[in-house]
Simulated assay, not measured.
Amino acid sequence: MSATPTPNVYFVGAGPGDPELLTLKAQRLIREADLIIYAGSLVPVAMLEEAGPECRIVDSSGLTLDQTHELIRDAARSGHRVVRLHTGDPGLYGAVREQARLLDAEGISHAVVPGVTAAMAAAAAANVSFTIPKICQSLILTRLDGRTRVPELEQLRRLAVHQAALAVYLCGPSHQKLARELLDGGYPPDTTIIAAHRVGWPEEDIQRLTLDKLAKTGAKPLWERQTIFLVLPSQELATSSRLYAPEFEHGFRKNEKNQTLQ
């Protein structure tokens, strides 16, 4: 069996915007790259500070898919290391699939390096948890309708039946529609909402409000399309995990009663 060839092309998750949230692998690949292609409208230039002095850096925000592919293909065929730097995690609301298909058609090996997605970065910045013991144990990552349609079964009013925590991407200017969909779907008006914009950037803006207030909030200058909204049911309830309770027994610890009997 032949060995898997070392990729020349890496789709790298840049995370939400804080260079310190890059993975160690992402940092290494940026240092080793001969060509870095990044979306200047989404990825801050601070992510590129460790690129080598000979590295060619291209902002893809004004390029088409074919133009971007040509740059990657030509560099890879010349034996150069290419980093395609994507905001957040490449597997979520990215455009990796169509780029990868073009590379596969030409026999160019590639790999994906995950990054911190905005939902997790926003929860950390707001000091909240998506899950609450016995109350909320599921998280749904989704978005509102836009230029790309959302399937009917995945409309927010349909997802609301689960009463799960939500992370809703790409809907900053449509926050009132977001609120109406959630209220119509059955989320209580006092449901906690975290509105997070530019998480990890110098202009980071994290706001905490309730669903009914979100429905009445006018346009916010900072709530651009990339704003993410965290929907957190029963966030204010004081509940605790059973994992560390004295009577909770698992493979590494006996409960207090069993310890007394031994």
Rank of each mutant, 00 (worst) to 15 (best):
K220H: 12
L29E: 03
K213S: 11
E154K: 08
P90Q: 03
V58L: 09
T23D: 07
A119S: 12
H80A: 07
A3N: 11
A76D: 00
S129L: 08
L209C: 13
A33S: 12
A3M: 15
V96H: 05
A160G: 06
Q155G: 04
R253T: 12
Y244M: 08
P7Q: 03
D34K: 00
T131I: 04
A238R: 11
E247H: 06
A245L: 14
R149Y: 01
G17H: 04
Q262D: 14
H80G: 04
I135H: 15
A33F: 05
P7H: 02
G94C: 08
P221V: 10
G94L: 08
I30H: 06
H86C: 06
I135A: 11
A118M: 06
L102W: 07
P189S: 06
D59C: 01
T260G: 13
T68A: 09
R97S: 12
R97L: 08
A125Q: 09
V12I: 10
K216S: 12
R28E: 12
R149L: 04
S240L: 10
K254T: 13
V96L: 15
L261Q: 15
H80M: 09
G62K: 10
P189V: 10
R253K: 15
H80W: 04
V113P: 09
W223R: 08
R253H: 05
R180T: 15
A51N: 07
Y169A: 00
L24Y: 08
P189K: 06
T239H: 13
A123E: 10
A215C: 10
A100G: 08
T68G: 11
W201G: 07
Q67T: 02
I37C: 14
D212V: 12
V82N: 02
M120H: 03
A33R: 01
T191R: 06
A238N: 08
N255Y: 10
V112L: 10
A215V: 06
L102G: 02
K177I: 15
R101P: 01
I57K: 05
L153D: 15
P151Q: 05
S61F: 10
G172F: 09
L243P: 02
E32L: 12
H80L: 06
